[in-house]
Design a protein around this nucleic acid. Sequence first.
DNA 1: CTCCATTATTTACCTAGGTAAATAAAATCA
DNA 2: TGATTTTATTTACCTAGGTAAATAATGGAG
Lengths: 145, 145
Amino acid sequence: MDNINNRDLFHLLNQRVRYLSKEINNRLNDHGLYASQWSIIFCLERFGPMTQTAIWKYLNVEAPTMTRTLSRMEKNGWIVRMQGDDKRERFIELTEEAKQKFTQVQQSTDKIEQEMVANLSLEEKKQLYKLLTKLGTTGEESHNE
Amino acid sequence: MDNINNRDLFHLLNQRVRYLSKEINNRLNDHGLYASQWSIIFCLERFGPMTQTAIWKYLNVEAPTMTRTLSRMEKNGWIVRMQGDDKRERFIELTEEAKQKFTQVQQSTDKIEQEMVANLSLEEKKQLYKLLTKLGTTGEESHNE
DNA sequence: CTCCATTATTTACCTAGGTAAATAAAATCA
DNA sequence: TGATTTTATTTACCTAGGTAAATAATGGAG
């Protein structure tokens, strides 16, 4: 494993991320949640009620993705959508049940994530974080706007 | 960015991978391809005709995922499915058109990937590879082969 | 005020990934 | 041989992600 091929690097990256997602979703299944839904709940718990646009911009996904995921979460009783003063926008709020379950789910995810980095020292985690930051940013190129 | 939080690490990891996928798919779109389809083509060019099972095991996805993606690729003229001696299995083969386009597409993907690691030195790429290897393997677990 | 541009959200239509269960063919076993 | 188990693929049903275009409401310019 001496000379690194870009292809192998991206291949490994994809494999790992898919594996991790699968595993996380698997564990979250006990709570009736998916990783994407949990990231929204976490966001709402942290910042309080937000518009859909604020959420998808924060999480870096597209608007339709957010619409759909929130619809499922609404159906499953995790969130409610409230009409704002500006009638175009909808404020998203966690339900009482979601707030109650929050701590428990958080403990699960903390544990999973901890297991997944069990082989990395603190120093290695910092390194990994830094390297990921450098990935995909082609020097002077801008992000999406 | 001194003390790394596992959550932030995984968040960044997901964000980056989604960004990279989006970008790669975007570029591959010129060739009428998606990253997942390209990985299959690459695999077939490297190893020659393979059964579906061999492909999904190699790429670490589930069988139904492979069935579907190959169906699209068959429809679009990238591959053909041949009956094997064992009538349960189907051998997948690149079409002539796929073989002809291979080099051109490969040049595109090489270029994209190169751009995406432009900010990483060789040493950093090796580090990243190594760190990714350690990620998700809870202790004694081995790599993919 | 009216018309036009912008903004928030949704709908329609794609790909990719997963699990569970159904087929169909091969392999094994009694 | 006949019955059972395994294996390869598919089908049905789910989530997540994307783009393009449609609504609907707001904001500005004239």
